[in-house]
Measured scan of single mutants.
Amino acid sequence: HYVEVNGKKIQATSAEEAEKIAKKFAKIYNATVLDLGNYYKVT
Results as ranks from 00 to 15, higher is better:
Thr32Lys: 09
Ala26Asn: 03
Val5Gly: 01
Val3Met: 01
Ala15Asp: 05
Tyr40Trp: 14
Gly37Trp: 05
Lys23Arg: 13
Asp35Leu: 13
Lys27Val: 10
Tyr39Ala: 05
Ala31Pro: 01
Ala26Tyr: 03
Lys8Gln: 11
Tyr29Gly: 05
Ala22Tyr: 04
Val5Arg: 00
Tyr2Met: 04
Lys24Tyr: 15
Glu19Trp: 15
Ala12Met: 09
Thr13Lys: 14
Leu36Glu: 06
Lys27Phe: 11
Thr43Cys: 13
Ala15Tyr: 08
Thr32Glu: 13
Ala22Thr: 02
Ile10Asn: 00
Thr13Tyr: 09
Ala15Thr: 07
Lys8Glu: 09
Glu16Gln: 12
Glu17Thr: 05
Ile21Phe: 04
Ile28Asn: 06
Lys23Met: 12
Val5Leu: 09
Lys20Ile: 10
Leu36Lys: 08
Val33Ala: 05
Asn38Arg: 08
Tyr40Ile: 11
Val42Phe: 01
Lys23Asp: 07
Glu19Met: 15
Thr43Gln: 12
Ser14His: 03
Lys8Tyr: 14
His1Glu: 02
Ala15Pro: 09
Val3Tyr: 01
Ala26Phe: 04
Lys9Gly: 02
Gly37Ser: 05
Val42Leu: 07
His1Phe: 15
Gly37Met: 05
Glu16Phe: 09
Ala12Gln: 01
Ala18Trp: 05
Lys24Cys: 15
Ser14Ala: 02
Thr13His: 13
Lys8His: 14
Tyr40Lys: 05
Lys20Leu: 12
Ala31His: 09
Leu36Pro: 01
Ala31Asn: 03
Asn38Phe: 11
Ile10Ala: 00
His1Trp: 15
Ala15His: 14
Phe25Ala: 04
Val5Phe: 12
Ala18His: 00
Ile28Cys: 14
Asn30Ala: 08
Gly7Cys: 10
Thr32Ser: 10
Val3Ser: 00
Ile21Asp: 00
Ala26Glu: 08
Asn6His: 13
Asp35Tyr: 14
Ala15Lys: 15
Thr13Pro: 10
Gln11Arg: 14
Ala22Trp: 07
Val33Cys: 11
Lys41Thr: 08
Asp35Gln: 15
Thr43Leu: 13
Tyr2Lys: 03
Ala22Phe: 05
Asn30Met: 08
Glu16Arg: 11
Lys41Glu: 10
Thr32Ala: 10
Leu34Ile: 14
Ile10Gly: 01
Lys9Glu: 05
Lys23Ile: 11
Thr32Trp: 08
Val3Phe: 02
Ala15Gln: 14
Val33Thr: 03
Val5His: 05
Tyr40Ala: 04
Ala22Ser: 03
Asp35Val: 14
Lys41Val: 15
Glu19Arg: 14
Gly7Leu: 03
Asn30Asp: 09
Ser14Thr: 10
Val3Gly: 00
Ile10Val: 07
Asn38Tyr: 13
Ala26Arg: 03
Tyr2Arg: 01
Asn30Gln: 09
Asp35Gly: 04
Tyr40Leu: 13
Lys8Ser: 09
Tyr39Ser: 06
Tyr2Trp: 15
Tyr29Ala: 06
Ala22Cys: 07
Ala12Tyr: 07
Tyr29Lys: 05
Ala31Arg: 02
Asp35Met: 11
Ala31Ser: 10
Gln11Ile: 14
Val42Gln: 04
Ala26Ser: 05
Asn38Met: 10
Lys27Gln: 13
Phe25Val: 08
Gly37Tyr: 05
Tyr39Gln: 02
Ile28Trp: 14
Lys27Ala: 12
Val42Ile: 09
Phe25Ile: 14
Lys27Tyr: 12
Gly37Arg: 00
Gly7Pro: 00
Tyr40Gln: 04
Val42Pro: 05
Lys23Thr: 08
Ile28Val: 08
Ala12Lys: 02
Tyr2His: 04
Ala22Gly: 03
Thr43Met: 13
Lys8Val: 14
Lys8Phe: 13
Tyr40Val: 06
Thr13Trp: 09
Gly37Gln: 06
Thr43Tyr: 12
Glu16Asp: 10
Lys9Tyr: 10
Tyr39Trp: 11
Glu19Asn: 08
Glu17Tyr: 05
Asn6Ala: 07
Glu17Lys: 06
Leu36Gly: 05
Glu4Tyr: 08
Lys20His: 08
Gln11Thr: 12
Tyr2Gln: 01
Gln11Trp: 15
His1Asn: 07
Ala18Cys: 06
Tyr39Met: 06
Ile10Pro: 00
Ala12Arg: 02
Glu16Met: 09
Tyr39Glu: 03
Ile10Ser: 01
Phe25Lys: 00
Val42Glu: 05
Ile10Glu: 00
Asn38Cys: 12
Gln11Leu: 13
Glu17Ser: 07
Lys24Phe: 15
Val33Phe: 07
Tyr39His: 10
Gly37His: 04
Glu19Gln: 12
Glu19Thr: 06
Leu36Cys: 15
Leu36Gln: 07
Ala15Trp: 12
Ile10Asp: 02
Asn6Thr: 03
Gly7Tyr: 03
Tyr39Leu: 06
Gly7Asp: 04
Ile21Cys: 11
Asn38Glu: 12
Leu34His: 09
Lys23Leu: 13
Asn38Trp: 11
Asp35Trp: 14
Tyr2Leu: 03
Phe25Cys: 14
Asn30Phe: 07
Leu34Asp: 07
Ser14Ile: 03
Leu36Phe: 14
Leu34Trp: 03
Glu17Cys: 13
Tyr40Asn: 03
Tyr2Pro: 00
Gln11Gly: 09
Phe25Gln: 03
Thr13Asn: 13
Ala18Val: 02
Asp35Thr: 07
Ile21Trp: 07
Gly37Lys: 02
Thr43Ala: 10
Gly7Trp: 04
Ile21Pro: 00
Glu17Ile: 07
Val3Asn: 00
Tyr39Gly: 11
Ala18Gly: 01
Lys8Met: 13
Asn6Pro: 02
Ala22Glu: 01
Phe25Gly: 01
Lys20Ala: 13
Thr32Gly: 06
Leu34Glu: 14
Val5Cys: 10
Glu17His: 14
Gln11Asp: 08
Val5Ala: 02
Ala18Gln: 00
Val33Ser: 01
Ala12Ile: 05
Val42Tyr: 02
Lys27Pro: 03
Ile21Ala: 02
Tyr39Ile: 08
Ser14Asn: 11
Leu36Asn: 07
Glu4Asn: 03
Ala31Gly: 15
Tyr2Asp: 01
Ala18Tyr: 03
Val5Gln: 01
Lys27Asp: 11
Ala12Trp: 02
Glu4Ala: 03
Glu16Ala: 13
Ala15Asn: 09
Lys9Val: 13
Lys20Trp: 12
Ala31Thr: 12
